[in-house]
Nucleic acid binder design. Structure first.
Ligand SMILES: [Mn+2]
Ligand SMILES: [Mn+2]
Ligand SMILES: [Zn+2]
Ligand SMILES: [Zn+2]
Lengths: 138, 138
DNA sequence: CAATAAATGCACTTCTGTTGCATGGTTCCA
DNA sequence: TGGAACCATGCAACAGAAGTGCATTTATTG
């Protein structure tokens, strides 16, 4: 594991105490987290600060948002070497209907889709829903 | 065009005046519509009634919801012969970044995705974003 | 140390979706 | 035909999440 504060400075983000906590929390999480998740984890922190922390992280390509259709935006760390600042990393996301967790499947890129004439794709969001590996007991 | 009231009765929905208006509005729309869209179209109607109308339509597989990532749920008529009451019709949706409209591409089904061991997909949502045929001038 | 800039905390707002409950209209059967 | 039961509608209020304004605290810099 890289040094969190070094990493954040490289990304152009001042490594404050709160930011380091949020970063480490996301780094240790296998699943994507909502603002409320983080709020509940660090009860003493203000929601707005956490909200703006995530926004800063997103601007600096440290995290990316995930819209899995549950109505709450989720956040996960970007892969090392992703080019999120230039274009989205079009990997798919999996939402488990049983444990309600959403994970990045960074190795699984969204396949090319053949569109009707005149349609030009610039971005894509693919969310698969079902039972995750932990919940399927395999 | 089929008779709207006949069709609704076949689906098990009483064809009230309001429901017929909403149904015809969606039938004439090429793009998916939000509750607010419908609310603005029929200004005299109450938002709750329209909301429940859409919910009823959804329960009876007359319309399906679309989550295109804009934060507002959109609705579009189901295809004739779709089996939305049993399982979702996994066609993809296209959201235009220019005109902000979202359309069903019912001929374009979501391709099969190979998942890691233990993951079982039951449902999927694929939204492509870019420039639609009208806006690309083709 | 003083001046400046950045981060944080609190209050408040907006927006969408949702529910409770009273009222009005339809259906249906004695 | 006269209701009783059922369904649809309208008004109000609520819930949850996202976002903003502004004052205060903390860090940086010269
Ligand atoms: Mn991801
Ligand atoms: Mn559709
Ligand atoms: Zn699971
Ligand atoms: Zn367009």
């Amino acid at each position: 594991m890289i040094q969190a504060d070094k990493f954040m400075e490289e990304k152009g983000v001042r490594p404050t105490a709160m930011r380091l906590l949020v970063f480490r929390f996301l780094a240790e999480s296998k699943a994507a987290k909502t603002l409320s998740d983080i709020e509940n984890t660090f009860a003493k922190a203000d929601r707005t600060t956490l909200y703006r922390t995530l926004k800063t992280f997103e601007d600096k390509a440290i995290v990316h948002q995930i819209d899995d259709g549950t109505g709450m935006t989720k956040y996960a760390l970007c892969e090392e070497g992703c080019n999120c600042e230039l274009e989205q990393d079009l990997h798919l996301h999996f939402h488990c209907n049983n444990c309600k967790e959403t994970v990045c499947l960074t190795e699984h890129k969204i396949p090319y889709i053949n569109l009707p004439d005149g349609y030009v794709a610039e971005d894509a969001n693919l969310v698969l829903k079902g039972i995750c590996d932990k919940c399927s007991g395999q």
